[in-house]
Amino acid sequence: MRAYSPKQDVQKKSYYNDRFHVVPHLPRLNVEADEQFLSDIDVLKQKFTVLEAYIENGHLVVWIPAKENLKAVKFLKEKLAYDMMMELSAIDYIASKGGFDIFYEMLSLSKHKRIRVKCFIEEKEELFSVESVFKMANWSEREMYDMYGVKVKNHHNLKRILMPDDWYDHPLRKTYPLQGDETAAWYEVDKIFGKEARDTIGPEIRDGAAIDRYDTTRFARLGHEVPFGVDITDGKEPEHTPLAYQEEGGVGLFGVRIIKELDENKSVQLKKRR
C-alpha cells in the first residue's frame, strides 16, 4: 500500500520546520491611528455591520458580511470618494475555514488612501456582482470564477477567461496540483490529434533534470555540427566543418562555381571603412 498523502492542500510545503520558531504577525494598528480612516469607519459603521476593522501596512481593512458587498462598495464609491477599484479576488481557505476570503481593493484618488473590503463566503455560496458599480469587475469576477470556482450572481457573461472554455476544475484552488491533473496533462494531445495519439507522443517530461541518452548524438557542438542522427560516440566524427558555415565546396551550377568558398585564414580585418 502506498503512503497516504493528504489531498486538501497539495502545494509545496517546507520540508524542515523549526518547531521553536514563532512567526510574528504583521503589525495591525487600531483605526484611531489615522483620522481620515477613523472618519470613514464612523460613517461606514452607521450604515453597515462592520465585523472588524484595522489598519495593516497603510491600508484600512474592513470586514463585512458577504451579503452586503454590493451595497458597501457602492456606498464607498459614492459617499466616501473611493472612486477606483484596483483589484478583486478570492483567497482559498477551504481546508481551514471552509470557504473563500473575497477582497476588494479600492483607492481614493482625492484622499490618497487605500481600503480593502473583505468578506467571507462558504464554498458553494454565491456573491453579488459589483459590475454595476465598477466595470472592471466584469473581467475580475470572471477570473475569480475561472481560477477558484466562485460563482457570481447577476453577471452577464460568467465564462472562463484565462483557461480554455472546456477546462476541468479550477486551477488556483489548493487541491489542484501545480502540474495539473490527468486531463490537463493530455489536453493538447486530445484536442489536436485525439486520444489515439497519446501513445505516439508520449507523456510530458516534467522532470527538470531528465537526460536523454541520445543527447550526445542528436545535439550539435559549436563548430562541430554533424547531420541528425549520425553516430559519434566512438570519437569518429566527420571532418571539421569550417567556421564559415557555408556550403562545403561553394555553390556550383552545372559545374561552374558561382560562390567562392570562404577560407577563414585568408580573411582580413579592415581597420577603417572604405
Binding site: V23, P24, E56, N57, M86, E87, F103, E105, R116
Partner: peptide, 19 residues
C-alpha cells in the same frame, strides 16, 4: 511574518500591484 500586503508601484504600463 503572517499578514497581507498590497503594494503598488508605477510601472511604465500603469499601476502594477502585488498582493
Amino acid at each position: 511574518p503572517k499578514g497581507e500586503v498590497y503594494v503598488a508601484t508605477e510601472s511604465p504600463k500603469g499601476e502594477l500591484g502585488y498582493m
